[in-house]
């Protein structure tokens, strides 16, 4: 089966996020008030052939630990969904 995998890599809490902080400071200048907690990360998407969703999740977790994220400074959130037929 083919699964759509989305990995969201975000800086770990406590790691300075100057990009998020800059965006947060800029928003009020455009009239968007009341925004707090802006964080910036990256999204990595791919298709993965795997026996099951749990197996796909496990594989993606290993990818994150070894390569897609740097556990010293980043956390990874993985979501796995079955790919749409014909996509």
């Amino acid at each position: 089966m083919t699964f759509d995998v989305q990995v969201e890599v975000m800086l770990r809490p406590g790691i300075a996020d100057p990009e998020g902080a800059t965006i947060e400071r800029a928003l009020p200048a455009l009239g968007f008030e009341g925004v707090t907690g802006v964080t910036v990360g990256k999204s990595i998407r791919f298709q993965l052939d795997s026996e099951s969703a749990s197996k796909a999740q496990e594989t993606a977790t290993q990818m994150c630990e070894q390569f897609l994220s740097n556990p010293v400074i980043e956390d990874a959130a993985i979501s796995v969904t079955q790919a749409q037929v014909g996509s």
């Binding site: 790691i15 300075a16 100057p18 990009e19 740097n70 010293v72 400074i73």
Partner: peptide, 11 residues
């Protein structure tokens, strides 16, 4: 080596 190099403060 341990640790990591992140983006400079103030980008």
């Amino acid at each position: 080596l341990p640790g990591a190099l992140q983006k400079n403060a103030h980008l």
